[in-house]
Design a protein around this nucleic acid. Sequence first.
DNA 1: CTCCCGATAT
DNA 2: ATATCAGGAG
Length: 212
Amino acid sequence: MDKSPAPIEEVIPHLKSEYPDARTELNWTTPLDLLVATILSAQSTDVRVNKVTEVLFDKYQTAEDYAAADTAQLEDDVRPAGFYRNKTKSIQGMARALISDHDGRVPRAMNDLVALPGVGRKTANVVLGNAFFIDEGIVVDTHVRRLSNRLGLTKEQDPEKIERDLVKIVPKTDWTVFSHLLILHGRRVCKARKPDCPNCILNDICPSADLS
DNA sequence: CTCCCGATAT
DNA sequence: ATATCAGGAG
């Protein structure tokens, strides 16, 4: 007998009052910056990514810069973020695709974004929502998945199936901020290993709350 | 499904 | 020591 899911119409206002300035914690200025930072963010912390991009964005500004970069040098720059060979290959492949197919610019369409090397639906949603203010979908990363499961908003584990459940219950105008709210709350309170349920603003409506 | 990979928290 | 971190490709 599982408990009822947390009502979304209460979850969102509660989290908005807790995190009124919710936005990405990745540092970026241009859409290309954000695309690179998001590729680097796979299985890495935002703090670590920001440390890497602080160096990276000084050396490379355009798709041409990344495409022309010495691969071994770029790997050295990327290394602290982890998966450095895959990520370097993705960044340079993505940069070449931007040059050959999109005049060196970051495209604003989901289909074009996910066609880029190293860019999946999660990364595409980050770029669309934050760089272009297009609520095309909901970013489902490790935090959004974990909190959505704990709150009972979905029973799915596959990110695309979770997104399909979430877009049905979250107002479209909140799609981008919603993922930021869950990500921030996931980092600070509803952590993977030791969730701080006693200090969680959602503990009275969360079916997974452990107040012992 | 496995592999990719370094840094940090527990 | 081990789980985890703004995933994606083969």
